[in-house]
Computed example of a mutant assay.
Amino acid sequence: MSGLSKNNARIRELRKIIKGSKQRLQSEKFAIEGLELLREAISTGHSPIDIFLSESSTLSGSVEELVQETDAKIWSISDDLLSSLASTVNPQPVISTLPIFNYSIDNLLSPLANFLVVGLGINEPGNAGSIIRSAAAAGAQGVVFSKNSVDIFNPKAVRSSAGAIFRVPISIGFEDVQIIRSLKQVDMSLIGLSGEGSTTYTAIDFLRPFAILVGNESTGLQTEVLQEVDHLVSIPMDAGVESLNVAIAASIVSYEAKRQRLL
């Protein structure tokens, strides 16, 4: 395990990867923080590239054992340097880089696909991560994010997914119209979520192939998408409550789908 200074090329690249979507895209790498996320990545077949461990950490043995069957390199860095790199106020003592992955939407839409969650124009990384997490927990076969959504490899999005980013196939980078067209080509029922929906979400039959569509946190689903959905559904709420967080709304409807499929 070799030591690195703040001027090392790997450290400079890591800093840019953590801070910027553009650098993540250019390098085709993203960063995860903590031993548990590293363990989750490796257990699901996602091998790390570099692992940066704080010099005072007692986790070196655990990390070495965890990555022994990978080609990952382990680097020691000072505690202060790791703190300056981390995206959290109270950083964990290990940061790892991994290759970015992206499933094609055609691969997600296999003959067996019957439950997808689609985020169109999602702005907040925490919401994106939570949508991924609840979709995986509810048994979705994939999650799709439009081109104008937040970078799902943003550290907060990865952290909010609680490791689910490694457990459910995710497709990113397509325009809304491309996504809708692809879903319709395989005869998926499009279930749009909106406070203006005329149908209560529990009235939908989730036993046939479907995709749950959620829109931007402020503006919701765009007009061109609303015109294409098969069902526009809402979640009943008591008077005085403006709306639910988009990730919570997606979770509620996803779990209704799971409930129906368990009956």
Rank of each mutant, 00 (worst) to 15 (best):
G3H: 15
K6Q: 13
N7L: 15
R12L: 09
Q23W: 13
L25S: 07
L25K: 11
S27G: 07
E28G: 13
A31C: 04
E33Q: 08
T44S: 15
G45D: 03
P48W: 05
D50N: 15
S57G: 05
L59D: 10
L59E: 12
G61H: 07
G61E: 02
S62G: 03
S62E: 03
L66W: 03
Q68Y: 08
Q68I: 09
A72F: 03
A72Q: 09
K73P: 04
I74T: 03
W75I: 04
S76C: 12
I77C: 07
S78R: 04
S84F: 15
T88L: 07
V89I: 08
P91Y: 04
Q92R: 10
V94D: 00
V94R: 01
S96D: 11
L98F: 09
L98M: 05
L98G: 02
P99F: 05
N102S: 06
S104E: 14
I105F: 02
I105P: 01
L108T: 15
S110G: 04
A113W: 05
N114Y: 11
F115V: 10
F115Y: 10
L116V: 13
L116H: 10
G119N: 01
I122H: 00
G126A: 05
G129C: 02
S130V: 02
I131S: 08
I132W: 06
R133A: 09
A137M: 06
A138F: 04
A138Y: 00
G142T: 06
G142L: 05
S146P: 02
N148E: 06
N148V: 05
N148R: 05
V150G: 02
I152L: 00
I152R: 00
I152Q: 00
I152K: 01
F153H: 00
A157M: 02
V158C: 00
V158G: 00
S160N: 01
I165P: 10
D176Q: 07
Q178R: 13
R181L: 15
R181T: 14
R181H: 15
S182G: 07
S182Y: 08
L183A: 08
K184M: 04
D187I: 03
S189W: 14
I191T: 15
T200D: 12
T200V: 12
T202L: 11
T202W: 13
A203H: 11
I204H: 07
D205S: 09
R208S: 14
R208C: 15
L213P: 13
V214E: 07
G215M: 08
N216T: 03
E217V: 06
T219E: 08
G220A: 07
G220R: 04
V225C: 12
L226T: 14
Q227E: 13
V229F: 04
S234N: 13
I235M: 12
I235N: 12
P236I: 06
A239V: 09
V241D: 15
V241N: 09
S243Y: 07
L244A: 06
L244E: 14
V246Q: 06
A247E: 02
I248L: 03
A249Y: 08
S251F: 01
V253F: 07
V253I: 13
Y255E: 08
E256V: 03
E256S: 10
R261T: 02
R261P: 05
L262R: 14
L263E: 14
